[in-house]
């Protein structure tokens, strides 16, 4: 090993001018058991770095994290669920509209068949009979009214007589 090169590298290391590659060279060099006395303190530092690099988490850690990750609700599955709920909502509104339409239509059809709710009869003969019935009813009632009106007329006659009697 070229000690001069190490000397140079170390000098540049303390100045913060070494590249990552050069720093790796230094680490490898100081990993040997024996180094010249003047570099003992530097060796301690580089060994410390090497030892620190070996600090690891234990194997149980992975299991713990993966179990937790698998436990967290999946975002994409949440989206599918949201879409499903939206569809159900739309379907529910549709169902209500269809049901409402059905009932309104039922009622409309029922009313259409009721003869007193619509003004014409399908059968002309029936219509004539019905009209005759109605006219007869009117004339009957009209006659009744005239009879009553006659009574009022008699009262008028009597009044006339009283008036002419007074003039005499």
């Amino acid at each position: 090993m070229d000690f001069n090169k190490i000397e140079q590298l170390l000098e540049r290391y303390w100045e913060g001018e070494t590249s990552l590659e050069e720093e790796r060279e230094l680490r490898d060099f100081f990993d040997r058991p024996e180094v010249p006395a003047k570099w003992k303190s530097a060796q301690v530092l580089f060994r410390y770095f090497n030892e620190q690099r070996k600090v690891d988490l234990d194997g149980l850690f992975d299991e713990k994290v993966i179990a937790q990750v698998e436990d967290t609700p999946d975002i994409s599955r949440g989206k599918v669920r949201k879409l499903f709920y939206d569809l159900v909502r739309v379907a529910a509104v549709g169902l209500i509209l269809i049901t409402a339409t059905y009932f309104v239509r039922e009622q409309y059809l029922e009313q259409k068949d009721d003869p007193y709710m619509v003004d014409t009869f399908e059968n002309p003969k029936e219509a004539f009979e019905e009209t005759k019935k109605a006219l007869l009813m009117i004339s009957k009632n009209f006659n009744k009214g005239r009879k009553e009106a006659k009574k009022v007329g008699a009262f008028n006659d009597a009044q006339e007589k009283v008036k002419s009697g007074n003039e005499l």
Binding site: Q52, V55, L57, D62
Partner: peptide, 15 residues
């Protein structure tokens, strides 16, 4: 992907 690309960083994060 998580296991192969993210989990291996754990020791650096830990240190």
């Amino acid at each position: 992907t998580f296991k192969t690309q993210v989990l291996p960083i754990k020791n650096k994060l830990y240190r």
